[in-house]
Every structure is written in structure tokens, then in C-alpha cells.
């Protein structure tokens, strides 16, 4: 009896890798908790103008350093700006910096990693030595050095953090790529005349996605931390931009009598990082079972 085409397709889907890990992901409590926190942070970033009770820049000069109240749920800062509104808008800066800097690292690092894995030989050698030099810097110091060169601004922070990620993504993609380049299906594809670019994009890239996804999630968490750190040091967002790091930095000066100005932005940084870290751990459990204990 002939087996109907849809049933074969269904079987293939069950055996295929994507649906299985999606299924496992749903059952993974860590991924669920982390995913929920991340979704909330991203939603806050998107909906900040709707959610915020005030403008993040408006100065209520008669209400400076006022404690939490119904009008100002998280109090006001030294200029009489609503801390809650600034924290909500701060999510935009964090998510935006994280998204752009991770994209820079992913695009440049991923491309060179694939190139190193696929070309091998002198290419591999040259790319990896450059990555080694970048990797030899402690990451925050590298970002600080780049900002010293480019000058302090949020746009430069994205570049600086992106540069930190390049060697990391080069290594992850290359390592995953090396395993796949030697698989028989890649050899078969090569034998049937597929071009290098086609093999890299069709076969090597999709199969490196799992480790890349885990690394990307953890990179976002690091990017949020790095942006906050650099802005805290005065090298990132400049006033009056509502970056969590710079809010914490200026709030520290009033901590004795207005601790909310320092607590609120710090808590926001912590929650955002926590969300991405938990999600990253969950994804790793699902996508890379060897790492699971």
C-alpha cells in the first residue's frame, strides 16, 4: 500500500531536528521563565511611551528627589524627573544597544568564523591569530580603549561592544563549522559541484545555528551589562539620555536621602540580565544536551 505523501512529511517532521527542539524548549522550565522575563523587558522597551506616566526628560522642578508616591511610583531624581518613566525608557536604550552590538559581532564574527572553517589553511591561520589578539584583551578594557579612541557616545558604545563579540563569534562559528565541513553531506554537495558560498550558507550555517543561538542570548545579556557599565563610567550614554548605567551613577550621589534614584535603575539592569541569562541556560540545556548536567 502506498504511503501518502503528507504522512511521510509528518514523519520527517517528527524526526527532523527543529520540531523536536521546539517541543523540548516548551517543556524546559528555565527557558520558559527566562523567555517570559525577556518578553516583558522587550515589551517595556517597545511600549515605553504608552506605559510611562511622564516624559523621561520632563523636569518637575518643584518635585526634586521626591520619594515614591502615586504620582511618581518610583520617586523623582535630582532634576525632578520621574524615575519610573526614565527606567521604562531606559529599556529601549539597553535593548537597542544589545541588538545592534550583538548583530555587529554576529555578522562580522560569524562570517569570518565560517570562512576560517570552510577555507582552512592560511585563511584559518590569519583569522584565528587576529581573533587571538582581540581575545587577549579583557573585554571591558577593550571596550574602554575603543571608546577612548572614538569618544564617549551611545553609538560608539554599540561599536565597542560589537568588537568584543567578534572574536567570540569567530570561535563559536568556526568550531561548529569545522565539525560540519567534514560531514559526508557537505562532501556530497561539494562533489555535485556546489559553490563554496552555497555550501557555507546551505549546509554549514544552518547546522551552526544551535550553538550560535545560545551564544547570542548570553551575548545580549553581556551587552546590556557592558552598556550599563560604560554609561556608569560616563563613557556611554550622555545626559539627559535615560540609560540605566548613567542613572545609577548620578543616583549614587543622593543615596543617603534618596536611595530610589540608585536602586531602581540597578534593579532594572539586574532583571534584564537575569532574564537573558536564564533563557540562555535553558536554551543550552535544550540545544546542546552534552552541556546539561
Amino acid at each position: 500500500m502506498a504511503v501518502s505523501a503528507p504522512s511521510i512529511a509528518r514523519q520527517a517532521r517528527v524526526r527532523g531536528s527543529a520540531p523536536i527542539w521546539v517541543h523540548r524548549l516548551r517543556g524546559n522550565r528555565l527557558a520558559l521563565v527566562g523567555g517570559t522575563i525577556v518578553a516583558i523587558v522587550v515589551l517595556v522597551a517597545l511600549l515605553a511611551p504608552v506605559l510611562a506616566p511622564h516624559s523621561p526628560y520632563e523636569q518637575f522642578t518643584s518635585d526634586q528627589l521626591v520619594g515614591p508616591s502615586p504620582t511618581y511610583p518610583l520617586g523623582t531624581d535630582e532634576f525632578g524627573r520621574d524615575v519610573l518613566s526614565r527606567v521604562l525608557f531606559g529599556a529601549r536604550i539597553s535593548i537597542q544597544v544589545a541588538a545592534i552590538s550583538v548583530s555587529i559581532g554576529l555578522l562580522i564574527g560569524g562570517t569570518f568564523g565560517l570562512l576560517a572553517a570552510y577555507r582552512g589553511g592560511a585563511w584559518d591561520m590569519a583569522i584565528m591569530r587576529v581573533a587571538d589578539v582581540l581575545f587577549a584583551f579583557p573585554s571591558l578594557l577593550l571596550a574602554i580603549a575603543v571608546l577612548a579612541l572614538l569618544g564617549p557616545s551611545l553609538a560608539n558604545v554599540m561599536v565597542a561592544i560589537g568588537i568584543i563579540f567578534i572574536p567570540i563569534f569567530v570561535r563559536v562559528t568556526r568550531a561548529a563549522g569545522l565539525v560540519i565541513v567534514n560531514e559526508q553531506y557537505v562532501e556530497a554537495s561539494r562533489a555535485s559541484g556546489a559553490s563554496g558560498v552555497r555550501i557555507a550558507l546551505r549546509h554549514v550555517l544552518p547546522n551552526t545555528l544551535a550553538p550560535l543561538l545560545v551564544q547570542t542570548t548570553l551575548a545580549i545579556s553581556y551587552a546590556i551589562l557592558a552598556e550599563a557599565s560604560l554609561s556608569f563610567l560616563g563613557l556611554g550614554a550622555q545626559p539627559p539620555e535615560p540609560s540605566w548605567g548613567s542613572m545609577l551613577s548620578s543616583g549614587r550621589g543622593f543615596m543617603t536621602f534618596a536611595p530610589w534614584t540608585a536602586f531602581a535603575p540597578g534593579a532594572a539592569i539586574f532583571i534584564a540580565i537575569l532574564g537573558f541569562n536564564i533563557l540562555g541556560d535553558g536554551l543550552r540545556d535544550v540545544l546542546d544536551p552534552r552541556m546539561k548536567v
Binding site: 545579556s221 551589562l225 543615596m255 543617603t256 540608585a262 540597578g266 541569562n277
Partner: peptide, 22 residues
Amino acid sequence: GMIGLSLPNFWLGTLLVYFFAI
């Protein structure tokens, strides 16, 4: 461990100053 991993050291430092110095 997960909480500690996600704590920015400069915020932890700020909290420590508030509770154990101020």
C-alpha cells in the same frame, strides 16, 4: 548562583555601601 551571575558589580557595590556603610 544565577542571581549572583546577573548582578552588576557596581550595583551590588552600591547596595553594599547603602546597607553596610550608610
